[in-house]
Protein backbone atom coordinates (compact mmCIF):
# COMPACT_ATOMS: atom_id res chain seq x y z
CA UNK A 1 0.00 0.00 0.00
CA UNK A 2 2.84 2.35 0.96
CA UNK A 3 4.59 1.47 -2.34
CA UNK A 4 1.54 2.55 -4.31
CA UNK A 5 1.24 5.74 -2.29
CA UNK A 6 4.93 6.55 -2.84
CA UNK A 7 4.58 5.99 -6.58
CA UNK A 8 1.51 8.21 -6.68
CA UNK A 9 3.35 10.99 -4.83
CA UNK A 10 6.31 10.70 -7.20
CA UNK A 11 4.10 10.86 -10.30
CA UNK A 12 2.24 13.86 -8.89
CA UNK A 13 5.49 15.66 -8.11
CA UNK A 14 6.90 14.94 -11.57
CA UNK A 15 3.74 16.18 -13.22
CA UNK A 16 3.73 19.31 -11.13
CA UNK A 17 7.38 20.18 -11.69
CA UNK A 18 7.49 19.27 -15.39
CA UNK A 19 7.66 22.48 -17.42
CA UNK A 20 5.10 22.93 -20.21
CA UNK A 21 6.94 21.45 -23.14
CA UNK A 22 7.70 24.04 -25.81
CA UNK A 23 7.67 21.22 -28.37
CA UNK A 24 3.95 20.83 -27.87
CA UNK A 25 2.99 24.41 -28.62
CA UNK A 26 2.25 25.75 -32.05
CA UNK A 27 2.78 29.48 -32.07
CA UNK A 28 1.91 32.33 -34.43
CA UNK A 29 5.07 34.14 -35.49
CA UNK A 30 6.21 37.28 -37.28
CA UNK A 31 9.57 38.94 -37.73
CA UNK A 32 10.92 40.85 -34.73
CA UNK A 33 10.85 43.91 -37.03
CA UNK A 34 7.15 43.48 -37.75
CA UNK A 35 4.66 46.09 -36.57
CA UNK A 36 2.09 43.36 -35.99
CA UNK A 37 1.33 42.93 -32.30
CA UNK A 38 -1.73 40.71 -32.39
CA UNK A 39 -4.08 38.94 -34.80
CA UNK A 40 -7.35 37.35 -33.77
CA UNK A 41 -8.51 33.91 -34.93
CA UNK A 42 -10.72 35.29 -37.73
CA UNK A 43 -7.90 37.44 -39.10
CA UNK A 44 -5.54 34.46 -39.03
CA UNK A 45 -8.13 32.32 -40.82
CA UNK A 46 -8.77 35.01 -43.45
CA UNK A 47 -5.06 35.44 -43.99
CA UNK A 48 -4.36 31.76 -44.58
CA UNK A 49 -7.38 31.40 -46.82
CA UNK A 50 -5.91 34.01 -49.13
CA UNK A 51 -8.11 37.00 -48.25
CA UNK A 52 -6.64 40.43 -47.74
CA UNK A 53 -5.61 41.24 -44.16
CA UNK A 54 -3.83 44.50 -43.36
CA UNK A 55 -2.16 45.80 -40.24
CA UNK A 56 -1.40 49.52 -39.98
CA UNK A 57 -1.87 49.74 -43.72
CA UNK A 58 0.53 46.92 -44.57
CA UNK A 59 -0.85 43.93 -46.41
CA UNK A 60 0.17 40.78 -44.53
CA UNK A 61 1.58 37.71 -46.26
CA UNK A 62 0.76 34.20 -45.08
CA UNK A 63 3.59 31.68 -44.98
CA UNK A 64 2.66 28.01 -44.66
CA UNK A 65 4.73 25.67 -42.49
CA UNK A 66 4.82 22.30 -44.24
CA UNK A 67 8.00 21.16 -42.51
CA UNK A 68 6.24 18.35 -40.74
CA UNK A 69 3.02 16.49 -41.32
CA UNK A 70 1.75 17.04 -37.76
CA UNK A 71 2.00 20.82 -38.05
CA UNK A 72 0.05 20.67 -41.30
CA UNK A 73 -2.64 18.54 -39.68
CA UNK A 74 -2.98 20.92 -36.72
CA UNK A 75 -3.07 23.90 -39.10
CA UNK A 76 -5.89 22.35 -41.13
CA UNK A 77 -7.90 21.30 -38.08
CA UNK A 78 -7.39 24.29 -35.82
CA UNK A 79 -6.60 27.30 -37.96
CA UNK A 80 -8.55 26.96 -41.19
CA UNK A 81 -10.93 24.19 -40.04
CA UNK A 82 -10.92 22.38 -43.37
CA UNK A 83 -9.81 19.08 -44.83
CA UNK A 84 -6.62 19.09 -46.88
CA UNK A 85 -8.50 18.81 -50.18
CA UNK A 86 -11.05 21.48 -49.31
CA UNK A 87 -8.35 23.90 -48.19
CA UNK A 88 -6.32 23.35 -51.34
CA UNK A 89 -9.37 23.87 -53.54
CA UNK A 90 -10.40 26.99 -51.59
CA UNK A 91 -7.02 28.58 -52.13
CA UNK A 92 -6.96 27.59 -55.80
CA UNK A 93 -10.48 28.96 -56.19
CA UNK A 94 -9.40 32.34 -54.83
CA UNK A 95 -6.60 32.40 -57.39
CA UNK A 96 -9.08 31.65 -60.14
CA UNK A 97 -11.77 34.03 -58.92
CA UNK A 98 -9.80 37.13 -58.07
CA UNK A 99 -6.20 36.42 -58.96
CA UNK A 100 -5.42 36.31 -55.25
CA UNK A 101 -1.94 35.12 -54.42
CA UNK A 102 -1.66 31.69 -52.81
CA UNK A 103 0.23 31.44 -49.51
CA UNK A 104 3.90 30.54 -49.84
CA UNK A 105 4.77 27.11 -48.42
CA UNK A 106 8.08 25.96 -46.94
CA UNK A 107 9.02 22.38 -46.27
CA UNK A 108 12.18 23.35 -44.39
CA UNK A 109 11.84 25.09 -41.03
CA UNK A 110 15.14 26.99 -41.36
CA UNK A 111 14.04 28.42 -44.71
CA UNK A 112 10.65 29.33 -43.28
CA UNK A 113 12.24 31.17 -40.35
CA UNK A 114 14.57 33.03 -42.70
CA UNK A 115 11.63 33.99 -44.91
CA UNK A 116 9.69 35.36 -41.93
CA UNK A 117 12.72 37.25 -40.61
CA UNK A 118 13.33 38.79 -44.03
CA UNK A 119 9.78 40.09 -44.51
CA UNK A 120 8.14 42.24 -41.81
CA UNK A 121 4.73 41.56 -43.36
CA UNK A 122 5.08 37.76 -43.27
CA UNK A 123 2.98 35.78 -40.78
CA UNK A 124 3.54 32.11 -40.09
CA UNK A 125 3.35 29.46 -37.40
CA UNK A 126 5.86 26.97 -36.03
CA UNK A 127 6.62 24.75 -33.06
CA UNK A 128 7.57 26.96 -30.13
CA UNK A 129 10.78 24.95 -29.62
CA UNK A 130 12.00 26.00 -33.08
CA UNK A 131 11.58 29.74 -32.53
CA UNK A 132 11.48 30.39 -28.78
CA UNK A 133 15.15 31.32 -28.51
CA UNK A 134 15.44 33.22 -31.77
CA UNK A 135 15.50 36.95 -31.05
CA UNK A 136 14.77 37.72 -34.70
CA UNK A 137 11.31 36.16 -34.35
CA UNK A 138 8.36 37.59 -32.43
CA UNK A 139 5.81 35.14 -31.05
CA UNK A 140 2.32 36.64 -31.16
CA UNK A 141 0.45 33.91 -29.38
CA UNK A 142 -0.05 30.20 -28.89
CA UNK A 143 -2.34 28.75 -31.56
CA UNK A 144 -2.45 25.20 -30.23
CA UNK A 145 -0.99 23.21 -27.39
CA UNK A 146 -1.11 19.66 -26.16
Amino acid sequence: MSKIAATAVLVTLLAATRPVSAAEQLVLIVSADSKVEQLDSLEVRKLFLGLTVTYNGDRLRPVLDEADARVKKIFLQNIVSMSDTTYDRSVLRLTLIQGQIKPIAYKDIAQLINAVIADPTAVSYAWAKDVAHDSRIKILRVLWYD
Binding site: D58, I101, K102, I104, A115, D119, T121
Partner: peptide, 10 residues
Protein backbone atom coordinates in the same frame (compact mmCIF):
# COMPACT_ATOMS: atom_id res chain seq x y z
CA UNK B 1 5.72 26.67 -58.50
CA UNK B 2 4.28 28.21 -55.39
CA UNK B 3 6.85 30.95 -55.53
CA UNK B 4 4.36 33.73 -54.92
CA UNK B 5 7.35 36.01 -54.55
CA UNK B 6 7.36 37.72 -51.21
CA UNK B 7 9.92 40.37 -51.74
CA UNK B 8 10.40 43.67 -50.03
CA UNK B 9 8.92 45.65 -52.88
CA UNK B 10 5.54 44.44 -51.61
Amino acid sequence: ANVAHAQHDH
